[in-house]
Structures are given as C-alpha cells and as structure tokens.
C-alpha cells in the first residue's frame, strides 16, 4: 500500500510520521509539498502534526487554504484514505473535511503527556487491528485540542459512529466535549485525531500501542 506525507512550513512531526509509515509498511511514503496541485497515486495521505504557519489566525486555518488541500479534498471524495494527526487534524477540520472545531485547551496550558484512548469504533479502515472498547496508550502534545461541535453536529457525529477514539480513564487532557479524541467523516475514509500514534510504535518508544492504527490503514495486519 502506497502512502504520502504532506509537508507545510511549520509542520515538524513529518519525519516521525515518515519513519512510522516506513517501518510499518516497509515502504517509504512519498512527500508532497503544500503547493502541489496534483497528488501521486497513493492509497493513504497523511497530514502530520506541528505548527503550520505558526498557528497564526487559528491552528491549521492557513494551511487548510493551501493548494494541496484542494487536491486532498478531491482525493478524499474519490475514496482515498486521509489521516490527520494533531495539527493535521486541525487542518482537516479547518478545511471542512471533518465536522467540528478544535479550541484552546480548557486548562490554557500546552499538554505533553501520555493519555489512555478507548477505541470506540473498531470497524473502520483505521482501527481494524484493535478491538471495540480496547484501551490503548498514546502520547499527546498540543495547545489547541479541545474538540467542540454544536449540539446538532455532536448528535450526528455520535449517532453515525464517527467518534473513533475517546480519552479514557479520566485522561482527557484538553476539555474535549464527550472526551472525543478522534473523529472520522461519514464515509469513513478521513480520520483526524489529536494524539500521536506514530510516537508509540516500537520498543524504543516504550510501547507499540499506536502501531495498530497504521497496520490497519496500511493493510499490513499480522495474521
């Protein structure tokens, strides 16, 4: 399975993401710069974390208006899988590819720690390697991860099974409504989450709970 990693000025988790994708799939992803209007023929596009455009205006707001995002929208509509992590999640929300918004953490503090995540929906292309209700460890590092959606949007997101991950065991680090840590679109091919599964994939990281997400989406689940 072929993958691509999007690069924008200010993103700084792209190398972690490239390393994770390479180690888990055995193939290095192609990298795509923000000005590209044609994307390579891949099965998965990943927008990694960081601080695109210095978080100016709103996190992800300026990145979401770059040419590459039009191309990503078209690919997403065509069914290509798209994953946004941290700033990548913020960009997908700002681009209108996912419902809701991310606000400043309720504590007003940058949080960098490990949290527990519940796999709420294990029947997605991103979570097949996990069991429903499974609790996994995952690191977070962000200032604006407080998920918000109005009552109507929230009801539909919950009702459609679009909530993929929730902070579990009282580890919600940011005040997200309903402890939401990751949501997908209705079609199920676009997922965004605040935690960094790419930073917990091997023994050197102190665990490999994040590996299942990449194994699922890259279709390399061990039998």
């Amino acid at each position: 399975m072929k993958s691509a990693v999007v690069q924008l000025p200010g993103l700084n988790r792209d190398r972690d993401m490239i390393a994770a994708l390479t180690k888990i799939s055995g193939k290095a992803p192609v990298t795509v710069w923000q000005t590209e209007t044609e994307l390579p023929d891949v099965d998965l596009i990943v927008i990694p974390g960081g601080f695109s455009y210095g978080d100016y205006l709103r996190c992800g707001a300026i990145a979401a208006r770059m040419p590459v995002m039009q191309a990503i929208k078209a690919k997403a509509e065509a069914g290509v899988k798209v994953l946004g992590v941290c700033n990548g999640f913020q960009i997908l929300l700002e681009a209108g590819l996912l419902p809701g918004a991310l606000m400043r953490n309720a504590s007003l503090k940058f949080v960098c720690r490990e949290v527990k995540l519940e796999v709420v929906n294990a029947e997605t292309d991103f979570t097949r390697a996990y069991g429903k209700g499974q609790i996994i460890r995952c690191p977070v590092a962000h200032h604006d991860g407080n998920y918000f959606a109005d009552a109507e949007t929230l009801a539909s997101v919950e009702g459609n099974g679009q909530v993929v991950f929730r902070y579990a065991e009282d580890t919600n680090p940011n005040g997200s409504v309903n402890d939401i840590a990751g949501v997908m679109n209705v079609k199920g091919n676009v997922l965004g989450l605040m935690p960094h599964p790419e930073n917990l994939i091997e023994a050197a990281h102190g665990g490999s709970d994040g590996r299942g997400l990449f194994a699922s989406v890259l279709d390399v689940i061990a039998a």
């Binding site: 205006l57 709103r58 707001a61 929300l93 809701g100 918004a101 606000m103 918000f148 109005d150 949007t153």
Partner: peptide, 9 residues
C-alpha cells in the same frame, strides 16, 4: 466565510 472566521465556532 473563507478565512477570517471559522463559522463553526
């Protein structure tokens, strides 16, 4: 609508 405000919030 396109940039200055996020009309979701």
């Amino acid at each position: 609508e396109k940039l200055l405000a996020n009309t979701v919030i």
